[in-house]
């Protein structure tokens, strides 16, 4: 399994159905070198953001360049396990998700009023009813727990 180690980010690349999966670990910043991550066979590119710890404005710009390069080689990009800091960029920055790309799974904060437990819950975009997040049982006390965000803002990337 090839692994690309850059200054602030490590990318594990592995084949998957119809393309490649990129698992990212570290920070997306100005040190991202786009050229090292393009040129693979066109197809689906599944990006796993699970271990992305930070992203800054210069990182956002480099990321958009990478997405444009992948789109130009005919790849379709899918985002998985997006933490809150990535969801923020998806909602705010034009082009962070490339044309034709999608957010398949993402984390949302949940809060239980009963025991004040905070959890990050992985949601599947296609299972949501538009911009409405489902209620769930708190992982600590079993009481009802609800999304801890303004849904119309946090889930803004989901088409109505």
């Amino acid at each position: 399994m090839p692994s690309v180690k850059q200054k602030s980010l490590e990318i594990e690349i592995s084949p998957c159905d119809g393309g490649n999966e990129l698992k990212l670990s570290g920070e997306i910043n100005e040190d991202l070198i786009v050229d090292e991550l393009v040129g693979y066979k066109a197809g689906v590119v599944k990006v796993d953001f699970e271990n992305v710890k930070m992203i800054n404005s210069c990182g956002v710009r480099e990321w958009i360049k990478l997405m444009e390069a992948l789109a130009n080689q005919g790849s379709k990009v899918e985002y998985y396990n997006c933490p809150q800091i990535v969801v923020q960029q998806v909602n705010m920055v034009t082009g962070f998700v490339p044309e034709g790309g999608s957010v398949v799974t993402f984390y949302a904060p949940y809060f239980c009023d009963e025991c004040e437990n905070e959890e990050k819950v992985l949601l599947v975009t296609s299972e949501l009813d538009g911009r409405e997040a489902p209620e769930r049982k708190c992982g600590e006390c079993g009481a009802e727990s609800e999304i801890d965000a303004m849904e119309d803002v946090y889930l803004n990337f989901i088409p109505e």
Partner: peptide
């Protein structure tokens, strides 16, 4: 909410 393609910072 759009990054700049000018040299320097990203502008956001």
């Amino acid at each position: 909410n759009e990054v700049s393609d000018k040299a320097g910072g990203a502008g956001i």
